[in-house]
């Protein structure tokens, strides 16, 4: 197996293991460190976070994250095809020749 695949598999395996172990744990809120650490210490030191200027909450926040992830994924996939697709090097040579 090539080192590239080995590294990608190792990363994916670690990610999947984290999710499986997390799901097996007793119920917890899975608070983000931005709230659990940053905002907690800031509050202890006398600063509270403001309400965000664009305050998306609840399912709207889920929607925004899903749309952002999808757009990011599509852009990444498009660039990936340009970089590593079957005709990527040929296209680069053509661009260089045109220039």
């Amino acid at each position: 197996m090539s080192p590239n695949r080995l590294w990608l598999i190792a990363g994916l395996a670690l990610l999947i293991a984290l999710v499986i172990v997390a799901a097996a744990q007793p119920a917890t809120e899975w608070e983000g460190v931005d709230a659990a650490v940053v905002q907690r210490y800031a509050a202890d030191l006398g600063r509270e976070a403001w309400t965000p200027f664009v305050n998306v909450q609840g399912d709207l926040l889920l929607f925004v994250f899903a749309v952002a992830g999808a757009i990011g994924g599509f852009v990444a996939g498009y660039c990936w095809r340009d970089l590593f697709g079957p005709t990527s090097i040929v296209k680069d040579v053509q661009k260089a020749n045109d220039a």
Binding site: D34, V38, Q39, R47, E48, A49, W50, T51, P52, F53
Partner: peptide, 9 residues
């Protein structure tokens, strides 16, 4: 790492 709005003076 995302420091929230208003945390910093």
């Amino acid at each position: 790492m995302h420091i929230a709005e208003g945390i910093l003076p």
